[in-house]
Design a protein around this nucleic acid. Structure first.
Length: 876
RNA sequence: GGGCUCGUGGUCUAGAUGGUCAUGACACCGCCUUUACACGGCGGAGGUCCUGAGUUCGAAUCUCAGCGGGCCCA
């Protein structure tokens, strides 16, 4: 191979697209039949198919890909599956926008179809980005949660959990948008500052209507749903009322006065009416005090029959009427302005209500989840605390029903005759109860008249099943749980990680993964979270257009340690691109000097024929293999890649190649062969060790030096038979060369300007490589030079003196530093250092100090440099 | 308000188990076009290690408090 065949410029765009099209991706497939290699299954978290594989996903996928490629090279049977978590509100909203409809205007099945079509298009776009970024996904194990083949498992898992008594059906408060007629998640509630009226009312005591309690409320329209009045137990004003009953104005129901420490005695009158449900605090009180639930508002935001004569009114209408009636009847005695934070639907800005609805729940067993979390390795470790805190403060069980359409149907029917709940039989799955009737009669009353459950599963029910799915649960394959790795962001520990552990424990009583690797968030170049409003969003495509996938991936590796938030910096990508070009130049130089030397020649090469600096380079290379391997084992991709960068640029390019050029260009056949072997070994090792990080560059490099794909090669092995002093000698050669270069720079000389002569004393090293590199005749002279050596500084040994003298150490160190250097040297030579500190004479051993010495040139036209024990004389 | 996390030259960052001159990258300045590379090489300048107190002979490193940023959750 000659240099002329290798282009000077590394054309990343061209080369990356070439390999993307040429690669046979089946080389990344997991082999279910293989019993020899250990399995390494990754529970890839399926992204939501927005159509846009964003930079946060990309960082996460970089981490996964580094691990997947590394593990393959280490001989594991790796599965890096790709899934798509399709169901959810954002797609429903997008479909409504695109088709200018609301979901209730079209049949459910039709709306679902629209959502599916949009999702399919989005998945195609995202797949393309992923392939372009060089991720080594196993596409034979792709899963799409909206497909019956996947959601049948969600439904089956529901049946399994029901059998095991994890599932129940109960009335429960939900955030409800009366306009959209759906429950919405807490995350979908937006808050706005608002001013409302705080109304001061009289409630009279049931046993004595002349005795009044003053109540302040902002929600008088909920009077009909008032279930109790709460006061602070320490509030002296109300102590006498506790345990007695009050009569609610207008509606006349009797409600108890109850004590509760959560009541703020300072707010309003200090007496609070608890209703179904004015706010979240009402939910807590209703639950803790087991209060009666009265539904005053229906799903359309209208007052129910419970509101008596106000039935059918909208909430604001009812509020105005009730206030008027309270005033007329003398119940209202004052109104004040009140600042409040009102919860709005994020889509239509309608104030949300808290309604009580029948919902399906999954029991949360904190002990089970915590013990599961303990058996999992957390990377980084401190992330486990987040799960523990969340788990131990869970107030409620997991509500798995949602009032949506594009989601996995809950396979349940209700008998119209007797209200019996009929849960689907396993053999009927997959099934949509809104589209199909059950094939049996009601087991309780024998009727054949059902209505299907219109609520659907929370999307987490699909996505918390991935660990089971990818490890072969409910398939023809044997179950391979636990999987080895779950990579995911720290923002979803409380949801995704939590639910997945819960499900694996509930269904198979196993942990889902051996290890969970948590990635941080990607911040914009300004250090803030990327957002449309800040305008700091950068997409992977932006980076691909200007640079390359390999450069982007380096940013992923170097941006920060796993778990920490990573800023996107163009700088990192620019410097990554430069490294790629630098690596290419190293590669180009090396191959152009090989003259046919290749893998076979390297295999039969006699290592004992190498020169000192060759040994040094190979020893450094061994160190690199150790460092990168060690870092990869603990998911420190930044450390791993930094080590590669330092080796390639600093060690190999700036030092070894410069030192070895003389031999490569020279006539000495042995020296040349040694250099070729060393260079070839370094380049081929670099190619393999780069493969997990920069798969395109590595493949391009490997294509000229090896057979097949670099991504099917084994991880590089260390070179045996290096002398023990390899690094020491090499460092000295490097140090001497560097000192001479530094001398030239200080004296404003060109780097290649020849010096008359260089003499190296007191260093047994190869002078030939040095001589070539500094372009000057160089003599190696045994022993010390005949110049006067002058001690110039005393350096006390802190590590030894500190513990020895403790509080007196400061004085001793000071006294040692103050010694005349010449005197100190004599004492050290005699093996005994005596010093006076704090009026006391102290005797120390020779190792208590180091003496720094310099040579003086004694009038000759020379310059003297010091590198460790070696002395370099430059003759001008 | 709670939990977790971070705070090191202009910017970003390394710095387990406390020890002599605090790492590197980018930017900056000077010199150098030497047959891999000027997207390069060599050299240089630049730091109250957030603040305060404490532990210690000695703290960027350990403890406490405060200030400030980030994420998640109320």
């Amino acid at each position: 191979m000659t240099g002329s065949e290798i282009p000077k410029e590394y054309n990343a765009a061209e080369i990356e697209i070439k390999w993307m099209n040429e690669w046979d991706l089946s080389m990344y497939h997991f082999d279910w039949a293989d019993k020899t290699r250990p399995q390494y299954i990754i529970d890839t978290p399926p992204p939501y198919p927005t159509g846009n594989f964003h930079i946060g996903n990309s960082l996460n996928w970089c981490y996964i890909d580094f691990v997947a490629r590394y593990k393959r090279m280490r001989g594991f049977n790796v599965m890096f599956p790709q899934g798509w978590d399709c169901h959810g509100l954002p797609t429903e909203v997008k479909v409504e926008e695109t088709h200018h409809i609301t979901k209730n205007q079209v049949p459910r099945a039709e709306f679902r179809k629209m959502c599916e079509e949009m999702t399919e298009g989005n998945i195609i776009k995202m797949r393309n980005t992923m392939k372009r970024l060089g991720f080594s996904n196993d596409w034979s194990n792709e899963f799409i949660t909206m497909e019956p083949s996947y959601y049948v498992k969600t439904q089956r898992s529901f049946l399994k959990m029901h059998e095991k008594n994890y599932v129940y059906h109960e009335e429960h408060p939900v955030n409800w948008c009366p306009r959209c007629e759906t429950a919405i998640a807490l995350a979908e509630v937006e808050y706005r500052e608002n001013v409302t009226k705080l109304n001061f009312l009289y409630f009279s005591l049931a046993e004595d209507e002349n005795e009044k309690v003053h109540i302040a409320t902002s929600r008088p329209e909920l009077l009909c749903a008032c279930a109790a009045v709460a006061v602070n137990p320490d509030d002296a004003r109300y102590g006498k009322f506790v345990g007695k009953e009050l009569v609610v104005p207008i509606f006349g129901q009797k409600v108890p006065v109850i004590p509760d420490v959560d009541v703020d005695a300072e707010f309003g009158t200090g007496a609070v009416m608890i209703c179904t449900f004015g706010d979240k605090q009402d939910i807590r009180w209703t639950k803790t005090h087991n209060l009666k639930i009265t539904k005053a508002i229906d799903r359309n935001g209208k007052m129910t029959a419970a509101a008596g004569k106000y039935e059918g009114m909208s909430i604001p209408e009812c509020k105005a009427n009730i206030i008027e009636d309270l005033r007329c009847n003398g119940f209202l005695y004052e109104q004040q302005d009140l600042d409040q934070n009102v919860g709005l639907c994020w889509r239509c800005k309608t104030p949300i209500e808290i309604l009580s609805e029948m919902q399906w729940f999954v029991k949360v067993n904190p002990e089970e989840i915590l013990s599961g979390a303990d058996q999992i390795e957390w990377i980084p470790e401190y992330m486990k605390v987040r799960l523990e805190n969340w788990t131990s403060t869970m107030e409620w069980d997991w509500c798995i029903s949602r009032q949506r359409i594009f989601a996995t149907p809950i396979p349940v029917w209700y008998c119209n005759k007797c209200n019996e709940v009929l849960i689907a039989d396993d053999s009927w799955l997959p099934i949509d109860p809104t589209q199909e009737k059950p094939p049996v009669a009601c087991p309780k009353c024998g009727a054949n008249d059902f209505h299907g459950e219109t609520d659907v599963f929370d999307t987490w029910m699909d996505s918390s099943l991935t660990a089971l799915h990818v490890s072969g649960w409910d398939s023809d394959h044997e179950l391979r749980l636990p999987t080895q790795l779950r990579p995911q962001g720290h923002d979803i520990i409380r949801t995704w990680a939590f639910y997945t552990i819960l499900r694996a424990k509930a269904i198979e009583n196993k942990i889902p993964w051996d290890t969970i690797m948590i990635n941080g968030m990607v911040l914009g170049p300004d250090g803030h979270k990327m957002s449309k409003s800040l305008g700091n969003i950068i997409s992977p495509e932006d980076v691909l257009i200007e640079h390359s996938a390999d450069a982007f991936r380096q940013w992923g590796a170097l941006g920060g340690s796993v778990g920490s938030d990573v800023m996107f910096r163009w700088n990192d990508v620019v410097s990554a691109s430069r490294l790629i070009q630098k690596l290419w130049n190293i590669y180009r130089f090396s191959l152009s000097n090989m003259d046919g030397f290749g893998t076979k020649d390297a295999a039969s090469f006699d290592v004992s024929k190498l020169k000192q600096i060759d040994y040094w380079l190979l020893s450094k290379l061994n160190g690199l293999i150790d460092d990168v391997t060690g870092a990869m084992e603990v998911y420190k991709f930044d450390d791993a890649f930094k080590a590669i960068r330092v080796f390639a640029w600093d060690v190999l390019a700036d030092n070894y190649i410069e030192l070895v050029k003389g031999r490569l260009y020279g006539a000495d056949a042995d020296g040349k062969a040694a250099a070729r072997f060393t260079l070839f070994t370094a380049v081929s090792t670099l190619t393999k060790i780069l493969a997990p990080f920069t798969p395109f560059l590595a493949e391009e490099m490997y294509s000229r030096i090896g057979e097949g794909s670099v991504h099917q090669q084994g991880w590089p092995a260390k070179i045996d038979g290096l002398p023990a002093d390899a690094e020491e000698k090499g460092e000295l050669i490097k140090g001497i060369t560097s000192a001479i270069r530094c001398y030239k720079s200080d004296n404003k000389m060109a780097l290649n300007a020849p010096l008359k002569k260089i003499e190296i004393y007191n260093a047994v090293v190869d002078a030939a490589d040095i001589s070539n590199t500094v372009t000057s005749p160089t003599d190696l002279i045994e022993g010390a030079p005949e110049f006067e050596s002058v001690p110039v500084e005393v350096k006390p040994n802190m590590g030894m003196l500190g513990p020895m003298f403790r509080d007196k150490a400061g004085a001793v160190i000071g006294a040692l530093k103050a010694l005349p250097p010449k005197e100190a040297e004599e004492m050290k030579a005699a093996g005994k250092v005596v010093v006076t500190a704090g009026g006391e004479q102290i005797e120390l051993g020779a190792d208590s100090i180091e003496i720094k010495k310099e040579m003086v040139s004694a009038g000759r036209e020379i310059e003297i440099l010091h590198v460790d024990e070696a002395v370099i004389v430059i003759v001008k």
